[in-house]
Structure formats: C-alpha cells, structure tokens
Design a protein around this nucleic acid. Structure first.
Lengths: 212, 212
DNA sequence: ATTCGTTCTTGACAAGTGTCAAGATTCTGG
DNA sequence: CCAGAATCTTGACACTTGTCAAGAACGAAT
C-alpha cells in the first residue's frame, strides 16, 4: 500500500515524520538539560530518575517515555554537554591578536569556568570515570575527549603561531597536561581551597611559553 | 577503681588493648582488601555491601561490625590502596644507575601497571571523581594525590639528576601531565584499544628528556 | 466534533539497598 | 572449665531503585 502513494504524498509524509522527529529530539534535550541539573549536583552514583524528575518540571514517567533506560538518558546528557563545552575557548582564539591577549583571554575563561561551572565539570569527570566501567559510555566519552584535545590544540597552535613557533608537544600530551591541572584545581576548589584558582592560573601562565 | 590498679597491671591491660586494636585493624584491612576486588570490578556506583560480601568469604553483617557505614569502608579501602601504590616506582628510582636504566625501568613498570592493575586504577579515578561530590572522601583523596605527585617528582628529580639538570616544571604540572596521560591510556586500554599502552610509552619516552 | 495517534500521569511491582538487632558462635581471662 | 566479652550470622526493617502498564489528557486531521 505504501508503494501506491504519490510522490507528493510521500514527501508530505516524510516531512511530517522529520518534524515529529525533531520535536521528539528537542524534548529529549529539554529533559537531558533538566537531568544535568541534578546530575551535576549529586553525581552519577547518587542520581535516580525520580530525583531528576522531582528537581524538574517533569514526572518520572516522561523520562521513560523519551529514553529507553537510564543509560540512554545519561548518554544523551553527555552528548548534549559536549556541544556546549568544546567551543568555550573558540571566541578567544578567534579574536585574540597577540600572545598576551590570547593568554589573558584563555586564563579568564579558565577561571570563570572553574568557578561558575564546577558542577558540570565534576560531572564530566565522573562520567569519564564511569566509562572505565560501563562500556555503553565509552564511545561518547572518547569522542568528547578527542574534541577537547582538539580544542586545547587550537589554543596552543594559535599561541605558538603568534611566536612564530610550533607547539613543543603532541596534542595528547598537551591535553593531558591541561586537563590534569584543571581536574586537580577543580577538586581543590570544591574542597574549599581558596588558592586553587589562582594557582592554576599561575601554573598555566608559566607553562604556556614553555610548551608552545 | 581504675586508679587503684598497680602500674604493672595497667601496663598489661594497655598491652592487651593495643593487641586487640591491632587485631581489629588487621581484620578491617582483610575486609577492605576483599571489598577492593568487587569495587575494582563494578566501580563505586554499582557496588553494594551485599555484593562485596557475596564475592568474598565474609557475610554482609561482618562489614557492618567493622565499619560504621559504607563510606567508612570505602575510605578504609582507599587508604589501604594508597599504601600499595605510592611506592610502586621507588625500587626503580633506587636501583637505576643511568638515564636509560631509569627510563626503561619506569616505562616497564608503567606498562605492567596499566595492563595488570587496570581495575584498581579505574577505581582510583572513580573515587577521585566521587570526592568532588562527597566531602567525606576529599581528605583522603587529596592526601593520596599529594603522595602520587611526590612519587612522580622523585622519578623526575632522579632523571634530571642523571643529566645534571633540574626538572623544568613544577611538581604539580609534572604530575598532571603523567596522570593525564595515564588516565587517557587507561580508558583507551579498557575500551580495547590495543595501541593504547604502546602509545603511552612512546609519549612518555619522548616527554621525559624535554621536561627534566 | 470525532477519532486516532501522540504525549504524559499515576500507581504499582519486584528487586535491591543500607541499616540494625537478636541470637549463635568463638575466644579468652580467671 | 566457665562466665563474660568478642566476633559473627541471620533475618528482618524501611526505603529507594528502574521499569512498566493502564489509562487520562492532548492535538491534529478528517
């Protein structure tokens, strides 16, 4: 029967389906965004679907309607989180006209991120650790990690370019370095260490000229 | 009444108490070690006391007898884990007589650790992430992190010494770098990436002369 | 306006959780 | 050898969890 519909009817039906899909997907993202709130607060281990629902405008049933199970929801959250994250420093890279400008722009964003988005970042580290246990997370996590590595590489390349040089290390090493420093600073910051942010900035300020 | 016991009797009583305490503590460590098996397998989020007990020779009640609650148990596990970990490379540092020897010894241990103790290490990363949410973990985790930083610093210092130099970076930056690389390699290794170990070794081999 | 498919709510279920208490067992000092 | 303390077992409790199904509310097309 489906074979007998005209081309036009087919196109209309297809368009309707695409529209429905988009709406469905938009709703998933709404739900994922709401879930991120609670996940950032409690972490993966202590967050239940009911808790997520209670801290949001939705009922716990909706989450089961839009996601096949808990892992599906979390994966969607991670993917959505990625999109926000990997472009964070791109504006700085695009607008900076000198080493100093790039440095200061980078450091400012770094500090702001550490202080105002600590909850989202600890969730990222949580999920990356979960990926070591739960295979279902690995693909997304590895992909995000690659994107973050590329993001750091863009900054370093631009920085080196201003000095007429090339970065002294591999993308992997550079990412490991900055990610390790950030992770450590984040933990200290969350533990109430007032000096954590400043010391991270000092460290990075001192490191940039030596690695790029 | 206690005031009337003789000095000798007091000493005996004290000695008995110390003995009991030691026995108690030894048992705690036995239990913690058993718990680490399951924790390394399932991760913090998915591990319950009953699961721990079932995978061990103990009943779940014993754990409650020796630990005030679940966090107490996990903290004990973490502390015990630390003692094993921070001395891993000390023998290499102590016996190496040249840069090459130190490098090869370090790389060999690194590879062996990554391949044979992957489960314990993913647990460490898991718990370090948990510390960002659960304040009860922070003290121990920060302390272990400091110990690991010192461990890396010992290696780097010795390496630099052989070249008549001093490490080019701060202890924090060096630790961040190696920890970041290891963490990334561990995730890839667990994800089945056969090249993960080799690429970590290449990276480190190339990095050592440039940072020390 | 009615019908049909989508979306959402509600309540329930079975399984699993940390915790605890009562009693069995083992150890130990006198 | 035996009483009392310690260690351990067992089973229960109150609660939370993910999952699901039945049906209500809603929207759009006829």
């Amino acid at each position: 029967m489906a074979r007998q519909v005209t081309g036009a009817a087919r196109r209309v039906a297809d368009a309707a389906e695409v529209l429905r899909d988009e709406k469905f997907n938009a709703r998933r993202i709404e739900l994922a965004e709401a879930a991120l709130e609670t996940l950032g607060e409690l972490g993966f281990a202590r967050t239940s679907l009911r808790e997520i629902a209670q801290n949001s405008a939705f009922t716990h049933g909706v989450f089961h309607y839009y996601f096949s199970d808990k892992l599906d929801l979390i994966c969607c959250c991670v993917r959505h989180y990625k999109a926000k994250c990997v472009t964070r420093y791109d504006e700085v890279v695009a607008t900076a006209t000198s080493r100093d400008e790039l440095t200061e722009g980078f450091l400012a964003k770094l500090a702001a991120t550490l202080e105002s988005e600590a909850r989202m970042h600890r969730l990222w580290y949580d999920l990356r650790s979960q990926a070591m246990f739960e295979a279902a997370f690995r693909k997304d996590v590895l992909e995000i990690d690659k994107s973050l590595e590329a993001m750091i590489w863009r900054i370093a390349s631009r920085y080196a370019e201003f000095g007429g040089k090339r970065p002294a290390s591999s993308p992997a090493a550079l990412y490991a370095l900055f990610d390790g420093l950030f992770q450590s600073a984040l933990l200290r910051h969350l533990a109430g260490d007032k000096a954590a942010v400043a010391e991270l900035l000092d460290e990075v300020r001192h490191l940039l000229p030596t690695v790029c």
